[in-house]
Simulated assay, not measured.
Amino acid sequence: MSPIQQLRAGRLPRRLVQLIFGLFLYGVSMAFMLRASLGIEPWGVLAQGITHHLPFSYGQITIAVSVVVLLLWIPLRQWPGLGTICNAVLIGIFVDLALSVLPAPSGLPVRIVALAGGIVLNGLAGAIYIGAQLGPGARDGLMTGLVGRTGRPVWLVRTAIEVVVVIIGFLLGGDLWIGTVAYAVAIGPLVQFFLPLVAVRLPLPDREVAGQEGS
């Protein structure tokens, strides 16, 4: 759906609430992974690495990176939806808020639990905001745009992007450890598991309804 079609698809109040709630949980999940200090998701490695060199918070850097990624949509002729814009701005705000109240866990077992909980919560949060059907996140849009332009498989494009992002982030001082690998392995299946449970069912377009009635 185009951005306008997304807004006109129906059940908008419910979808807006779900979108914001999903982005809030996403920010909280990132804070859990950061506090665990056992490695974070690929784009988080980049954001964390940048924080070592610029006087900005993790959330502020996350927002700045999202804006840069959105600018890369322009030559790819991608159009951001409302959810895309909210994703770019709100996750950074929510992660900073969560970091301000979430203490760092002490002891390896507690850190492992924090990491695992953060990854599972991230999968649920991703499914919730994707299920609102108000546009992809900036990074997902970059991936789909490159797939459309290059004709390469989704897995190859996504892997290439995340490898480059992780390498740059690691060289800048970001955490690259077991949590990064665990996230990469688990996040796809987690989102796939949760998405059917939380996706908003939208009314069928008139022409699709007419086709079903005539069949």
Rank of each mutant, 00 (worst) to 15 (best):
V164K: 14
A127T: 03
M1R: 07
R149V: 08
R11P: 05
A114S: 11
A127K: 00
N122L: 11
L76W: 12
R158G: 05
L102F: 15
Q48K: 10
Q133D: 07
G92E: 04
Q18D: 06
F21T: 09
W177P: 01
L34H: 04
A125K: 01
G123P: 02
I74N: 05
P13Q: 06
V17Y: 15
Y26W: 11
S37D: 11
L124C: 07
P105Q: 08
L90H: 07
G59N: 06
S106D: 15
I61W: 00
P109E: 07
F194M: 06
N87P: 13
I130G: 01
F194W: 12
L46R: 03
L46Y: 03
A184E: 10
A160S: 14
L54S: 05
S57W: 09
Q192M: 15
V185S: 12
V191Y: 02
G211Q: 11
G141Q: 01
L102N: 03
R15W: 08
I93H: 13
S66E: 02
G131M: 02
R149N: 08
L156K: 12
P3W: 01
A98G: 07
P196M: 10
G92Y: 02
V209T: 12
L190S: 00
I61G: 00
P103V: 08
F21E: 03
G188A: 13
I91M: 04
A88F: 04
A64S: 06
G169C: 07
F21L: 14
I161Y: 14
I4E: 10
V120I: 15
W177S: 13
I4L: 15
P3S: 01
S2P: 03
A127Y: 01
I187S: 12
L76H: 05
A64E: 00
N122R: 06
P196V: 03
V181P: 04
A186V: 13
F193R: 04
S215H: 13
G137E: 06
